[in-house]
Design a binder for these strands. Structure first.
Lengths: 141, 141
DNA sequence: ATTAATTAGTTGCTATAGCAACTAATTATA
DNA sequence: TATAATTAGTTGCTATAGCAACTAATTAAT
């Protein structure tokens, strides 16, 4: 990697993220789940029946991205969408049986990955990274 | 954002990256340049005539991604691709006049963004973030 | 009550991002 | 030299990611 590019912390963060995402992708592939789809499933395993709007807020993503991720998860048979009767604009997202069964297989993978990625890194160091990244996030707002 | 999701440092890094990328995207939009396309241009402004293979290595990206980014940059008229005579499998990427003219407009934007994102963050803190992120990158290999 | 504004979700567009499979060209090997 | 292996790049596929523009439904304002 070129030195002038590496000097930009933004690019360094971006490339770290890419590597992490690729690794997660690989580990989730056997379960037919993509990394971001997994985040939706994590929220639904905690509590399903959320609206798409709620999912978009919790994941801080555009609603169009959520629509498409849910379409994919629906096609895979992990979730179903039900129109809310009291507000017919809203869609509530529920787990299917297949979606529910996935939980006990995926959680160990997710936890295992987190342990692997933070190996040899102290809680203080993680807190420091969080603190500085938070500062960067605030700087661009 | 949900607490259990926020606890995963990978997700926190991912969301930081998304915010940064969106901000860069906004600043580059007036110049008809996307964030990753800008990285290719940065490399070419430094030295053009690189092969696609070289660009892929320097940006640590898949060659398919590079092919498509270059197609887009070519369509926008910023670069041109020339088949290498001594090895007709290779393509050398050169700046067009339009691509060359872009440099003096873009560099201040890039530098300005870097200054903004690192405002109030010391060199030591940046080095610490780099050190810990590097550790994470190594952990997943 | 009618109109205006807002909200939830979808579709079209573009941009990243990588894997698998492919072509074409070059190099290595038998 | 003929074949095998490698290399550079492209195309098809899927997955993220967000903006603009849209529909449909609901709520607010006149």
């Amino acid at each position: 990697m070129n030195i002038s590019l590496k000097d930009y912390i933004s690019i360094f963060i971006h490339q770290t993220d890419l590597k992490i995402t690729n690794c997660v992708k690989e580990q989730l592939a056997p379960f037919n789940l993509a990394p971001e789809q997994n985040l939706i499933m994590l929220l639904l395993w905690e509590r399903d029946g959320r609206t798409q709007q709620e999912l978009a807020e919790q994941l801080q993503k555009d609603k169009t991205t959520i629509t498409r991720m849910l379409s994919s998860l629906e096609q895979k048979g992990f979730i179903k969408r039900v129109t809310e009767t009291c507000d017919r604009r809203s869609m509530r997202v529920f787990l299917t049986e297949g979606g529910k069964k996935l939980e006990c297989k995926i959680i160990p993978v997710t936890e295992g990955f987190h342990k692997a990625v933070t190996r040899g890194i102290t809680e203080e160091e993680l807190a420091e990274v969080r603190r500085i990244l938070t500062k960067m996030q605030k700087n661009i707002h």
